[in-house]
Nucleic acid binder design. Structure first.
Lengths: 330, 330
DNA sequence: GCAGACTTGGAAACCGCTTTCCTGGGAGGT
DNA sequence: ACCTCCCAGGAAAGCGGTTTCCAAGTCTGC
């Protein structure tokens, strides 16, 4: 590989001058030398070694993003938002997928720490297990002790800047909207009990129904994905309206109903949560709670990059979007 | 940050010994010292500085993946496949999204080169513009001249190892399958004319029809995305069967028909290409050509990591999947 | 009990770049 | 004309590791 020294030699200047010309500096370099250096670099096809720069400068321009699964459009949208924001800041992005394995998440934070990345973004829902969360917090603390910055999208469980969707409120609003339509018997496809996002959405929904004086819904736990929604839907009893705690599960539920000849929304209404863009053409169109995922990703990056010493927790409100997957009763 | 020197000092050993204990080496270290070093590292919370390691070792364990758009499930699946493969190799992944801007793609390759990444994967369709492709090739050549490895998923345009979906054949098979169902009047929602993937799929389809002695289809160009499919569908004439060159466009087309009250497949049949997983619950279920996207991503990484000096180009066959979005005529 | 072969630990060179510090020369002030 | 100040250019000291090369010790075999 061509090094800066090669360029300097070819241009007949010192290393320092070559560095100042090519890799940015506050110092001026005379026009003549500048031209010679640039020409030499061009002829030789010089590319600065970023590892060396990072080492010398003591700061890198890489950020790390940790998500569960890139093929899940929810994470893809969040990651995309963060990546676009990173690009405008001239930052490079390292992406890690954990496939929901907390150990992987911890390992990834350690690695990003080793990379001395400028910031790390933890995206997605975490389990409430204090042992695992504790170790993740330790690893993050270690990273932050070394000057690293971190932010997270999801719950405020980690003691870092957080962009938190207002899961409880969103679910509660949805519940009220559905009750407004005349529904009284509900089921919740609630996802895993220990997953905080899922639990919050479920709780918000249940509480809102309680406040309205409606009977408690049937709560069915299961995996947080499409197949989980599918399976849970087959267990739902005589509810007139089913709330899946995320859109992907709702789609699974719709598939289950379709296969069994249960008409949506005629026989049963279905609602989800997130408003995944890829699903906007789904039939029937899904009633859901819209979250501004891209903005949330971008905002998380902003928080991570910011100086703010006190830990910031931003609630992001969702917006209930009624579509054809629910019907008015009576 | 805690450095190796801090650890060595705390353990009362030399830098060399500490390095050998903590960061892997062929050399043995005595059990007593080893234990002291490990304890010191643990107490101090030492994390090796990867930038320094990369510099010293002259090799990094990072690979770069360049995709157009992570929120497009096609790229997400490909990237996911590659990332899973990378994880099993213990490699870190740097992901860049270009949003279809060729300049960004070139810039990203330059940056990955500067990072001295082990390999770079270019994923996705490229435009046929020789000027742009030439510059990308130059940048890649420069990278490879420095010992870098590259592979690409898409067309064999770059002179690097390539995993290429058999677009022509897949489209041709699809055409024959549709003709078998009795269709004779076709339209192709063909995407941008200069996009090689789109052009190949269109050409394969058109040629197959020609071979069958059927009339040439109406070819409608437009963007390669959902809205492109939507717009193109509104321009389709009296075809009984519409082929969108990718699934996302097909979904757009289905949306357009739905809005206009055109029934699919009763009034018109629709087929796509890719078999995007997220769309498997779409209604009506989409007839398409299945591509093993995850495997392709993984395979591309394998090729990039491999030693093989001669450039490998692997064709990956697609499989026609007939679903309810098409009907039998007669 | 001793020469020679292996091991183990440490000193120091090196990876490629940034940046501080120093030097010499030209500009500006009086 | 002299002195100061400023600025462009270069030498060299890091940044945090790895690895080569030595030296000293430990084992073996006879």
């Amino acid at each position: 590989m061509v090094t800066l020294e090669d360029v300097a030699k070819q241009a007949g200047v010192s290393l320092a001058t070559a560095s100042r010309v090519l890799n940015g500096s506050t110092r001026q370099v005379g026009a003549a030398l500048r031209a010679r250096v640039e020409q030499a670099a061009d002829e030789l096809g010089y590319r600065a070694n970023i590892a060396a720069q990072t080492l010398a400068r003591g700061a890198s321009n890489v950020i790390g993003i940790v998500v569960h699964d890139l093929t899940d459009p929810y994470f893809a949208a969040l990651a995309d938002g963060a990546m676009r924001a990173a690009a405008t800041e001239g930052l490079l992005v390292m992406v890690g997928t954990t496939h929901r394995d907390p150990e992987q998440e911890i390992a990834y934070v350690a690695t990003l720490n080793a990379q001395r990345v400028r910031a790390v973004l933890l995206v997605g829902s975490r389990v409430a297990d204090p042992a695992v969360t504790g170790r993740l917090r330790d690893e993050l603390a270690r990273y932050q002790a070394g000057g690293g910055r971190a932010a997270c999208v999801g719950q405020d469980l980690l003691g870092v800047d957080t962009v938190a969707p207002a899961n409880r409120q969103g679910a509660a609003e949805l519940a009220r909207a559905l009750a407004d339509l005349g529904h009284t018997r509900f089921a919740v496809l609630a996802g895993p009990p220990h997953l905080v996002t899922a639990a919050d959405r479920c709780a918000g929904f249940v509480e809102a129904l309680e406040e309205l004086g409606l009977p408690a819904p049937q709560v069915i736990h299961g995996p947080f994905d499409r197949d989980g929604g599918y399976a849970a839907a087959t267990q739902a009893g005589d509810a007139t309206c089913v709330f899946a705690v995320n859109d992907v599960m709702a789609v699974g539920a719709l598939a289950a109903y379709r296969e069994r000849g249960v008409r949506v929304p005629d026989d049963v209404s279905v609602a989800g949560f997130d408003d995944i863009v890829t699903l906007r053409d789904h039939v029937p169109a899904l009633t859901t709670v819209r979250l501004p995922l891209k903005d949330m990703g971008a905002r998380a990056l902003e928080l991570a990059l910011g100086e703010g010493d006190p830990v910031v927790v931003e609630q992001v409100a969702g917006e209930v979007v009624l579509r054809e997957s629910v019907r008015r009763m009576t």
